[in-house]
């Protein structure tokens, strides 16, 4: 009787420990839980997590979180999107869907310098298309692309609201007024 009891107990204990062991192991599909560290040990993930915590991991804050992520990493790679998806408990499809819907988010790494030509109507009628054409010819890339040496990304914007000083070009975040094709090339040349 007692023997049988012992063996039952042993069996139970081994079962229990087996269950406990599996629970301790990292789950195959990452659990949507707070506090998952990113295996790379990159500190930026920690900063992003703190930011999400500040927003109380609210699902409707997804766009704010992606803004922060892009600010930290420069672009949104799959790893970052998955990290956000786990923490906000949103399906990856939803996070990816939002990241690809909005023009402001980029899923490709940018070059060392960015040159954004405004293509709003006011800039367009004042010759922004000629600025883009000149830059395309000079850097041998199309808008949305980065040069092979990773120095320059050429982008176009819908309208940056600087219509009074058209055509406007944003060099590394600084808006410059009334740019001619020569102005733009001179500025970009100084980066190369």
């Amino acid at each position: 009787m007692s023997l049988a009891n012992t063996s039952l107990l042993q069996l139970l204990t081994s079962y229990m420990s087996a269950i406990l062991n599996t629970a301790e192991k990292p789950p195959v599909t990452p659990k949507p839980a707070v506090g998952i560290k990113h295996p790379s040990g990159d500190k930026r993930f920690k900063i992003l997590e703190v930011h999400m915590k500040k927003l109380q991991f609210k699902q409707d804050a997804l766009i704010e979180v992606l803004h922060k992520a892009q600010e930290l990493f420069g672009y949104l790679e799959d790893d970052v999107l998955l990290f956000v998806s786990h923490h906000l408990k949103l399906p990856p499809s939803r996070v990816y869907g939002v990241a690809t819907f909005y023009h402001f988010f980029t899923l490709k790494p940018q070059g060392e310098h960015t040159c954004v030509v405004c293509m709003g109507t006011a800039c367009y009628v004042k010759g922004a298309d000629k600025v883009v054409a000149a830059l395309e010819k000079f850097a041998k890339i199309k808008p949305g692309e980065t040069t092979a040496d990773n120095k320059l990304s050429l982008l176009t914007a819908r309208c940056i609201g600087a219509c009074g000083i058209a055509p406007a070009v944003t060099y590394d975040g600084q808006v410059a007024a009334k740019q001619s094709p020569d102005d733009a090339i001179a500025k970009v040349k100084s980066w190369m």
Binding site: D60, I63, E64, R94, V98, Y102, H103, F105
Partner: peptide
Amino acid sequence: IGAGAFVCGEETALMMSVEGK
């Protein structure tokens, strides 16, 4: 903060965006 989508000026689209979608 918007993220660059002209259609979000439309009111129902804007609300979707405020909801993070």
